[in-house]
Measured scan of single mutants.
Amino acid sequence: MIFPGATVRVTNVDDTYYRFEGLVQRVSDGKAAVLFENGNWDKLVTFRLSELEAVK
């Protein structure tokens, strides 16, 4: 189960963010908004829950 605050990895091989890890900001309607941070940039991207896996 994916909840806000969880760290997730993108599993969709066709996505630009494949294998990126980010922090879930919100979850609704089968989608999750994931925040990616890297140095001087932040990006908030929405994914279907089926495209994400929780990082242990």
Score class of each variant (00 low, 15 high):
residue 49 L to V: 09
residue 2 I to S: 02
residue 1 M to T: 11
residue 52 L to P: 00
residue 26 R to Y: 15
residue 53 E to S: 06
residue 7 T to I: 13
residue 29 D to K: 08
residue 8 V to D: 00
residue 11 T to L: 08
residue 25 Q to N: 04
residue 9 R to E: 02
residue 35 L to W: 11
residue 10 V to P: 04
residue 48 R to Y: 14
residue 18 Y to P: 00
residue 7 T to F: 12
residue 29 D to V: 05
residue 16 T to H: 11
residue 32 A to Y: 05
residue 55 V to M: 06
residue 34 V to W: 02
residue 47 F to D: 01
residue 27 V to M: 07
residue 21 E to K: 08
residue 11 T to C: 09
residue 47 F to Y: 14
residue 18 Y to W: 06
residue 37 E to Q: 15
residue 8 V to S: 00
residue 54 A to D: 06
residue 45 V to N: 03
residue 55 V to A: 05
residue 37 E to D: 10
residue 26 R to W: 15
residue 22 G to M: 03
residue 39 G to D: 10
residue 48 R to T: 10
residue 52 L to S: 00
residue 26 R to H: 14
residue 22 G to K: 00
residue 26 R to Q: 12
residue 16 T to I: 14
residue 20 F to R: 14
residue 17 Y to P: 01
residue 5 G to D: 02
residue 22 G to V: 03
residue 56 K to D: 13
residue 25 Q to A: 09
residue 49 L to M: 07
residue 36 F to K: 00
residue 49 L to F: 09
residue 23 L to K: 13
residue 47 F to L: 06
residue 42 D to S: 15
residue 14 D to H: 13
residue 16 T to L: 13
residue 35 L to E: 03
residue 31 K to W: 15
residue 50 S to L: 06
residue 2 I to W: 04
residue 1 M to S: 12
residue 25 Q to P: 00
residue 15 D to F: 04
residue 49 L to E: 05
residue 45 V to L: 08
residue 30 G to S: 05
residue 49 L to H: 03
residue 20 F to T: 05
residue 46 T to E: 14
residue 41 W to Y: 10
residue 11 T to Q: 05
residue 34 V to H: 01
residue 7 T to Y: 13
residue 2 I to E: 01
residue 32 A to P: 01
residue 7 T to L: 14
residue 11 T to D: 03
residue 28 S to W: 15
residue 9 R to A: 04
residue 38 N to W: 13
residue 44 L to S: 06
residue 16 T to F: 14
residue 12 N to F: 04
residue 30 G to P: 02
residue 12 N to A: 09
residue 17 Y to H: 08
residue 26 R to E: 13
residue 32 A to S: 02
residue 52 L to V: 05
residue 52 L to F: 02
residue 35 L to P: 00
residue 21 E to Q: 10
residue 23 L to N: 05
residue 54 A to T: 10
residue 49 L to T: 07
residue 56 K to C: 12
residue 51 E to S: 07
residue 43 K to C: 14
residue 19 R to D: 10
residue 30 G to Q: 05
residue 3 F to D: 04
residue 3 F to Y: 12
residue 19 R to Y: 07
residue 15 D to I: 06
residue 9 R to S: 04
residue 28 S to I: 10
residue 39 G to P: 07
residue 1 M to R: 12
residue 18 Y to S: 03
residue 31 K to L: 13
residue 29 D to A: 09
residue 15 D to T: 12
residue 38 N to Y: 14
residue 53 E to A: 07
residue 41 W to I: 12
residue 19 R to M: 15
residue 52 L to Y: 01
